[in-house]
Design a protein around this nucleic acid. Structure first.
Lengths: 332, 332
DNA sequence: TTGAAAGCGCTAACAT
DNA sequence: ATGTTAGCGCTTTCAA
């Protein structure tokens, strides 16, 4: 673990000047083929590896993208991360991750780390920081916020339209003949913008169908599916349940199974997020899928435009898809 | 987004020399209190932020830890990451993540990125690369491998003893009076070392109880719980199932529910990994918990020792815990 | 307590 | 096609 070889060592070994080594290694065309080969051979012989801090300092660009995930274990964001990484890699950029840990302080620290490293661009998934803080970040480095609606000046946004997603899910149930559709909401008191949008989409679909009066939003107090129990005693009793996410929908399935209510014949259930849970054969949940691939690509696209000089903030809104599985059927 | 201020700017603004700024910002004691305050004021006024590439180049240490996760969505590893991050932060080190994406090539690229960045230490979770490649990495930077047994020269290891975990789970079932315990294994053909260890632990416990002959290992061919179906037709029919992971155990619960076999009264089920799934109220799965916190701390500990000069490779083996929930009970 | 100066390893503009 | 040279922004002796 002694001092690692530098370009000077490679140059000496190959019998050329330091500058030539740099040019050869970065693949510049004006180096003679034979010289290049000699240099490459010397480099690999010595186990040479570029010193990124030095190169980044001299170049005044790092080729790094910083990605702050609020929660590494959120499958949607980790998929977005994967697609973003792929797109960046194709463009010769390296993506670095940092976990915000659902904590505004840690999130800010992660951003600060990336700013110190002088990343060329920053993507923040579902940030906890306020608009002012985000705007300040956006002024220092091209920044894209994913999974939360904007706008914030000097920051780009890409998010999936939750209103449209919930509307589409509700329309699916309406098309199956359901008229009494209960919405299993997040626990009362929690008010994330996305969750508010989902309720709005549900209501909008009912109203458009002339069923605005049947809207029935039930908060999941203990976050364990207890809303289902309360939904069943409503009158008229719902024939379909739309949950704000897959976990709640699965909890509903569990409760219905214990209560002997067959799904989908006697009750249709729709989730949201299309997590792995929804695809599991024993759940087979109809759910709303957020397009992680398009999200990741859009985020990279926005970043590229910024690096290319765009100055105006942009927002990209994507439409979610409905994945129909076997937890929904016509009202009998 | 113009050129960001440097220490020279801060020095000019505060009316001191550049070197003093550096000393003041890095908190060296030999700077007069009043001078330090003036410098700090100037720095924050200008929005100064250290340029990590420059500092890292000059210092020849980065204060960075690179963490390569094989799969960001594996909850065990993401918890390990969180604890490692905390420990590192306490010691003034910054942790950077990179997703290996279950792909040896990407994993190698992630490692390479970190080596170029000149991280002070590297942690690789569940690497796909072979021992030779790992040894080569370990020779260049202090390296800890998590979640896979060693040894490999010049690399440290920390992993959770899967033999002990499966043994303990089996002993729990034996203590409840079960004698016919089927093991739901990974699909045949897959042979990860950890999975092999789990089977070994199961067998060891049975043998220690004088029941070696009743060992009954059933591969989950379609990875959807089909093993459960085949377990039920064994003779004598098992009264308990031990699954190689929680997902399989949950699949088993689903199958048993459809078959009208009550859990735990007519069948006990044990999972492995203590994922979020296991804790969900409708599953309430007894399972084996791998201590992510101790793993993260141990990894950091090993790294610290290396940075402190230790030269000999070390391996730390941790014992898993059994989390007893409501999917197991006495044989009726 | 403060300042001057020598690099850290690399890139890029320029000269040959 | 190859070599020379001047920084990049910072840390860290060493003198003052």
């Amino acid at each position: 673990m002694r001092r690692s070889p530098t370009q000077a060592d490679v140059a000496a070994h190959a019998g050329v000047s330091r500058a030539l080594v740099s040019m050869a290694l970065s693949g510049r065309p004006e180096v003679a083929q034979s010289t290049r080969e000699a240099i490459l051979a010397a480099a690999s012989e010595l186990g040479y590896r570029v010193n990124a801090p030095a190169a980044n300092l001299a170049r005044r660009r790092t080729g790094l993208l910083g990605l702050v995930l609020q929660d590494v274990s959120n499958p949607f964001f980790s998929e977005v991360a994967a697609h973003l990484q792929d797109a960046a890699a194709d463009a010769g950029l390296t993506t670095l991750l940092n976990d915000g840990r659902r904590d505004a302080g840690r999130e800010a620290a992660a951003v600060e780390t990336f700013l110190e490293l002088r990343v060329d661009g920053l993507v923040i998934a579902s940030p906890l920081q306020g608009s002012a803080a985000l705007a300040a970040i956006g002024r220092q480095v091209p920044t894209v916020v994913v999974g939360r609606p904007g706008p914030v000046p000097s920051v780009d946004f890409v998010h999936v339209d939750s209103v449209a997603g919930a509307r589409r899910a509700t329309e699916h149930l309406l098309a199956l003949g359901h008229q009494d559709i209960a919405y299993l909401d997040v626990a009362a008191g929690v008010s994330e913008p996305l969750m508010v949008d989902r309720v709005a989409g549900y209501r909008a679909a009912l109203e458009a169908a002339g069923l605005g009066g049947r809207s029935n939003v039930i908060p999941d107090v203990a976050a364990d599916g207890d809303a289902t129990e309360r939904a069943l005693v409503c009158s008229p009793r719902p024939t379909a349940l739309l949950a704000h996410n897959d976990v709640t929908a699965v909890a509903a399935l569990g409760f219905l199974a214990r209560a002997g209510i067959e799904v989908p014949h006697r009750m249709s259930v729709v989730g949201y997020d299309n997590t792995r849970l929804a695809a599991m054969p024993q759940f087979n949940l109809t759910t709303v899928d957020q397009p992680s691939e398009r999200t990741g690509h859009a985020a990279f696209e926005l970043l590229t435009e910024r690096l290319g000089g765009r100055d105006q903030a942009r927002t990209v809104v994507l439409d979610p898809d409905l994945v129909v599985r076997r937890s929904t059927s016509s009202r009998r």
